[in-house]
Design a binder for these strands. Structure first.
Lengths: 249, 249
DNA sequence: CAAGTGGGATGGTAAGACCAGTGCACCGAA
DNA sequence: TTCGGTGCACTGGTCTTACCATCCCACTTG
């Protein structure tokens, strides 16, 4: 025997509770909508104290797996799967990492063009109709209600992400678009100079829509890239140009 | 006055503690590597009891923001930003069936090919050397140490993501790769059938490396796409084919 | 039979205590 | 003087107990 002892890593009690409950949920032993035993019941079943149970429940809650409410008969409720936790993780990462505007725009360029390619072949008739509606709303609001225009713009992209059939792409797209929007509005409050590009934006989005409608994946991707580039390149430091250009070929 | 009372929503004490500490971290008041006050100190500063502080810390810990170890002078340590929490979210969602493996692979295909394109033009000499080293490590471990091979493989992609110059891309890439790896290895434990593709994987990665080294962005992206496709298409349900094919053009 | 009231269970929070591990400072030996 | 070991103080981990606010349900009462 070659002294193959495994390190005696200390394992937190509440972590084991988390593991067991988590696997009970993912394995379907308890289904969404059902209730776990109450804290007092769990502390008996796990042979641990209530604070330990509670710490475990807090972790599960922050993962979006369960929800605790007082009173309701029968303890913590198992929630429906939801992207809330992923969205939050993504958002905190974006906030935490002191990302540059260029990185955000670059990332969105990647996501958007891919989503458009996918949407070109995977869209449903209904989604296509919704895209058309959004584009028309944009065109109708050019130069009028800036907020309504922005909303229509966002709705268009939401629909595209939806139509890509990839929930991950959709979630990241929403998160990064939100982050960009936030930074932009903050930045604009300093510098002024807002609209005037509305007409161009609407035209770009219509171009994307038509490529998607025609099912021309490559063209849709190209137009999406170009749209992001045209819209945001001007607000990025010129020194960051290579980063964007590398993706434009 | 039009009866504009806001609902007296009960707010959990530990949630407020989480918020305050979280904003202290995201705002940079405390930096990664630094220590928060000890639990006993925090319970004085927040005027709450220790269990409340601990529940808040468990939540922050599950978000990957802090780490608690006994002894070390000065309380919980603030961690470097890491994709760990994102990785876990991905894996959990797939296990809960609210995300398919195909979506995960598709997402990685998008990220990987973009990262390779960027890396082709933005890489430093040092990073290039590191990539070469990883590829050679892979080739040396073919058919030998499976774990060392996997590590070299992962290191290669880590370097590529690093070289892309986009921290967001890198984080998401690491997260999705980690999730895929975790899910795959679990799946393999059930089905057996592992190696034999190691040689092919090494060859694919070498191809990517050479395209990056040559600065051929488009070719690097194409090869990265192909590599993901070849490696994972076989484990995905054939009905999900269109999703991947749409990106392969 | 309906409306209101009470009880009982739940989660939220607090206070106090003990244990095990860690790091540092101090002190003794080389 | 310097190196090494020992002890102490502090940390987090866990447990116990307790009290409060809330909520659901059943029972009582009109």
């Amino acid at each position: 025997m070659t002294t193959q002892f495994t390190p005696a890593v200390p394992v937190r009690t509440y972590e084991r509770v988390v593991e067991q409950i988590e696997s009970a949920i993912t394995s379907g032993t308890v289904r969404p909508g059902e209730h776990l035993p109450s804290e007092r019941e769990l502390m008996v079943q796990f042979s641990v104290s209530r604070p330990t149970i509670r710490e475990a429940l807090r972790v599960l809650q922050s993962m979006g797996l369960v929800e605790s409410k007082p009173g309701g008969r029968g303890g913590p409720k198992v929630l429906e799967p939801s992207p809330a936790s992923l969205t939050r993780s993504f958002a905190t990462m974006v906030r935490l990492d002191s990302l540059s505007m260029t990185e955000l725009v670059q990332f969105r360029l990647v996501l958007d063009s891919s989503a458009c390619r996918l949407a070109s072949t995977l869209h449903t008739a209904e989604q296509l109709e919704q895209m058309r509606s959004c584009v028309e709303r944009m065109e109708a609001e050019v130069g009028k209600d800036a907020e309504a225009f922005a909303r229509a713009d966002m709705d268009f992209h939401l629909t595209v992400w939806e139509a890509s059939g990839n929930a991950l792409l959709a979630m990241c797209g929403r998160a990064v678009a939100g982050a960009i929007l936030e930074l932009i509005t903050r930045q604009l409050k300093d510098s002024g100079a807002t609209e005037r590009t509305e007409a161009e934006s609407a035209a770009l989005d219509r171009g994307i829509f038509e490529a998607i409608a025609a099912g021309e994946a490559a063209e849709a991707g190209r137009r999406a890239r170009q749209a992001i580039y045209d819209r945001y390149a001007s607000i990025l430091p010129p020194s960051d140009g290579p980063g964007l250009d590398a993706l434009m070929g």
